[in-house]
Design a binder for these strands. Structure first.
Length: 832
RNA sequence: GUGGGUAUGCCGGAGUGGUCAAACGGGACGGACUCAAGAUCCGUUAGCUUAGUGCUUACAGAGGUUCGAAUCCUCUUACCCACACCA
């Protein structure tokens, strides 16, 4: 065969030199070794500082790991390895968020049971996770689909119920007809299902279970002070919780009191109409006979507008025919209904002050409603939204907004027509799902006893196998599950068929890792107290408003049960960026830009993949995958391997030592701060420095240790070759010896680099001018700097023989007097 | 609309007051080694200029602060993310 097999050629070239970087052999070898030696199994050790690193556990899909997983989990692993090498007692566990809709859907599509599907997916995940070299404690794996796990979800539910935090309520809920289930507010994206972007979410009234998370709203806000999270994550949560202080004012309509929330009670005397949400459940109660036709027509029109356009719709409304009574003046105020009032926020009715609220202003203009200015200010082109001195407000005239808020609220309070109050955007957490693959809600409905909780001793309520998948909730098709005796009276009752939102499962899993096999309790409080809270949590920004709020809520609740003595689950949190396809688009199968970690491991090895993932850019920013760039990471790893596996140790000179310690110092800080891109650069620089000259074993080992957090496999191999004791994984992180960092040497190095450049520059000129190749170069340096310059190294760099002279040397050859040009740090140069 | 973020050379991206024509990687180009290489090594990569120099123009745009700005402030523009009329 005449065709050249390049891959083979590369191999054989390596082989000829006797140094093949056979990454797949190396990676398998160390994977096995770590497992055999139980290297990463964590045990509570009194007196040793613990450190808990946690990645958000994955949802095990049948497709296996994607490149995003490879990226985040590598970040966690780097951190865990780092902390371990710093001597901390590290807990770095992994588990599977294995309940959830996708498994159920995929199982239905594939004609299997979700349990089968999940089992296979998890096995596949594990294989890949091990291939990536992530240093998990595999003895603590937690699977949320395991009845021994979700038993405790049910237990917590019962506690919530006991404490009055779990309740049932008929609610207009978001219903996705594709999922055949109800969605939480957080799962509705722009009026559409978060999983089915094409499906418009319907609003249906259903009897649902809720957790009263709003009870903790204030604490969730205050807790931010205690935790070291990115500011934008906190801001996002703050806005999500959306606390606003204001006044609740009761307007009476037809003898019935209608509370209205406002942050601007100072504008009360400027109220000229009220607007009730068009989606308000009690709207029709306000509509008079004469107006019924108009309101119906209006509602019909609203319904015909698709959700998509509803957002950009103009403010519209219609008079209900009713009048409210102003709480202070008793004046008659018309009540309108409008499309711009949010039904679920506050009471679903607002007081309109067109002079001082832009939305109200537009509405009033449109329908010719009265506009009364009550705050001094410029109303040139619309409402004056600022604060200021009150006018046209009877007894309150002359007050500043701030005092007026107090006075008016007090006046209302005296008349029992209002009070100071706080509103949140955060709603209670709707946990009911009409699906199979979730935690069954431990409740029995009994004709005689009503809603009866399943007694603790009967937990877990296990998902039945005899179900039929199809439309609706499969649990309803299991007679053995539904038909159950009432725990109270013993008569036949009916089991709750709703299951819990999967975010329930992930709200306390970090605690279960502390004691994953406990059969008698959620966890052992001692063990939890030892490991928790999480010291460093890592996961995507998409979880900030859902999971990261729920997990904080659960932690506070468990604390209130007396199970924990802390109230924040994660002290530090790091959000990584998104890995996008080479085309800059989000990776997706339909775009065909998906990169498979396994493919990359096959081609370049896990070490190169890991190194590439963190060296591209700062881990908290998004980045586009680049096929070519991973090649350079591979090349680097291979060179490192080639160099150190054949190392003939010599003596490190002082410059290498200085450089090493400088690098240790910088890399330590970079790894600590997740600045891996910068750390990698420094490691590359150190390597090219080292590999130019001689190093001793100690230095070589230190380099290998620094690189280890990024490339765990190849560094284990090299550590062994360099005669390191035990595993690098468990070795002690190199310590900085400040004394060895010599600024003068740094200056020397810099001078050397500059000189190389200068010589090359001059050589270029000479060639240009004379057309001849230079025969040699003389370098004249300051006497004190003589030791900085090595003729052999310079010759090698500039590819022309170089001789180095001290300017003070009487015997120097210097026909053109170039030595006179020499300055400190900048030698004279003569080319012959 | 509100809140948050980003804007750097051919590209990806470092860099948060002077040591910056700006790390590192990719690409391109030139050279070395080679029968040859997609392998390795060494360079160049704003323009003009120069025996290693100097100047000009540069970090989205326009202003400003400062002895001095990619870096701080203001406004504008574009893009990204979240929330979407929260009273």
């Amino acid at each position: 065969m005449e065709d050249i097999d390049f891959a083979n050629a590369r191999r054989s070239k390596n082989a000829g030199a006797g140094k093949v970087y056979d990454f797949s052999r190396i990676e398998k070898k160390w994977q096995k070794k770590w497992e055999q030696e139980k290297a990463f199994v964590a045990k509570e050790k009194k007196g040793k500082e613990k450190y808990y690193v946690l990645d958000m556990f994955p949802y095990p899909s049948g497709e296996g790991l994607h490149i995003g997983h490879a990226f985040v989990f590598s970040l966690g692993d780097i951190y865990a390895r780092f902390q371990r090498m710093l001597g901390k007692n590290v807990l770095y566990p992994i588990g599977y968020d294995s309940l959830g809709l996708p498994a159920e859907n995929a199982a239905i599509a594939a004609g299997t049971h979700p349990e089968e599907y999940t089992k296979k997916s998890i096995a596949n995940f594990m294989k890949q996770q091990k291939a990536m070299g992530w240093s998990y404690d595999w003895s603590r794996v937690v699977k949320t689909s395991d009845p021994e796990y979700y038993k405790w979800d049910q237990w917590i539910f019962l506690k919530m119920l006991e404490k009055g935090l779990a309740y049932r309520k008929k609610a207009s809920v978001n219903y996705c007809s594709d999922c055949d289930t109800v969605l939480a507010n957080e799962q509705v994206v722009g009026g559409r299902c978060w999983r089915h972007g094409d499906t418009v979410v319907e609003v249906r009234p259903l009897e649902q279970w809720f957790f009263e998370i709003t009870k903790y709203a204030d604490e969730l806000l205050k807790g931010h002070e205690k935790i070291d999270w990115p500011e934008r994550a906190k801001t996002l949560q703050r806005n999500w919780i959306g606390r606003s202080e204001g006044t609740e004012i009761v307007f009476s309509v037809g003898g019935k009191g209608w509370p209205v929330f406002t942050t601007r009670p100072d504008t009360l005397m400027g109220v000229t109409f009220l607007v009730v949400s068009a989606q308000h459940p009690e709207l029709m109660g306000l509509v008079t006979e004469e107006q019924k036709g108009a309101v119906d027509k209006f509602l019909k029109k609203l319904n015909s507008v698709s959700e998509k356009d509803a957002g950009s719709m103009d403010k519209e409304g219609v008079f209900t025919g009713s009048y409210a009574e102003h709480p202070l003046t008793g004046e008659r105020i018309p009540v309108w209904t409008g499309n711009f009032v949010v039904a679920e926020y506050g009471s679903g009715m607002v007081m309109a002050v067109p002079a001082h609220d832009q939305r109200d202003y537009e509405f009033a203009e449109k329908y010719g409603l009265e506009i009364t200015q009550v705050i001094e200010g410029d109303m040139g082109d619309g409402a004056y939204m600022g604060e200021g001195k009150l006018i046209n407000s009877e007894g309150f005239d002359g007050l500043e907004s701030r005092e007026a808020k107090e006075h008016i609220t007090n006046a209302l309070k005296m008349k029992k027509k209002g009070k100071k109050t706080v509103q949140y955007k955060l709603r209670d957490w709707l946990i009911s799902r009409q699906r199979y693959w979730g935690t069954p809600i431990p409740i029995v409905y009994c004709d005689a006893c009503g809603v009866v909780p399943v007694p603790e001793k009967d937990l877990p309520v296990v998902l039945p196998k005899d179900v039929t998948f199809g439309k609706g909730n499969p649990l309803e098709t299991s007679k053995s599950f539904v038909d159950v005796d009432c725990p109270q009276c013993g008569k036949l009752g009916r089991r709750e068929t709703d299951t819990m939102d999967t975010f329930v499962n992930s709200s306390w899993y970090f605690l279960r890792y502390a004691d994953p096999k406990n059969g008698g309790n959620l966890f052992d409080s001692q063990k939890a107290a030892y490991w928790a809270p999480v010291d460093q949590y890592i996961g995507g920004p998409e979880h900030i408003t859902m999971h990261l709020i729920y997990i904080r809520f659960y932690t506070k609740f468990l604390r209130d049960l007396g199970l924990l003595d802390f109230d924040e689950p994660a002290l530090k949190y790091f959000t990584q960026g998104i890995v996008k396809g080479a085309d800059g688009e989000k990776m997706s199968k339909s775009r065909g830009n998906v990169v498979e970690p396994l493919e990359m491991i096959k081609m370049y090895g896990a070490d190169a993949l890991r190194l590439y993932l963190v060296s591209h850019s700062s881990p908290d920013s998004d980045f586009d995958w680049d096929d070519k760039a991973i090649g350079s990471s591979f090349t680097f790893v291979r060179r490192v391997y080639d160099y150190f596996s054949e190392l003939k140790p010599g003596k490190s000179d002082v410059r290498v030592e200085s450089k090493l310690h400088q690098t240790i110092k910088a890399v330590t800080a970079d790894v600590e701060g997740f600045k891996h891109n910068l750390a990698v650069i420094k490691l590359r620089q150190l390597f090219s420095f080292i590999s130019r000259g001689a190093v001793d074993v100690k230095t070589a080992r230190a380099f290998v240790q620094l690189l280890h957090v990024y490339c765990p496999f190849v560094t284990e191999e090299l550590w062994e070759k360099l005669g390191g004791k035990g595993l690098v994984s468990l070795s002690k992180w190199p310590e900085v010896d400040e004394k060895k960092i010599d600024q003068k040497l740094e200056a020397a190095e810099e001078a050397g680099e500059k000189t190389v450049k200068d010589i090359l520059h001059v050589l270029g000129f000479v060639k240009e001018k004379t057309g001849n190749e230079a025969e040699g170069v003389h370098v004249y340096v300051m006497p004190a700097e003589l030791k900085w310059f090595d003729a052999a190294v310079l010759s090698e760099r500039v590819k022309v023989p170089v001789s180095v002279w001290s300017v003070a040397d009487k015997k120097k050859v210097d026909p053109e007097g170039k030595s006179k040009k020499a300055k400190p740090g900048k030698p004279g140069i003569w080319v012959r």
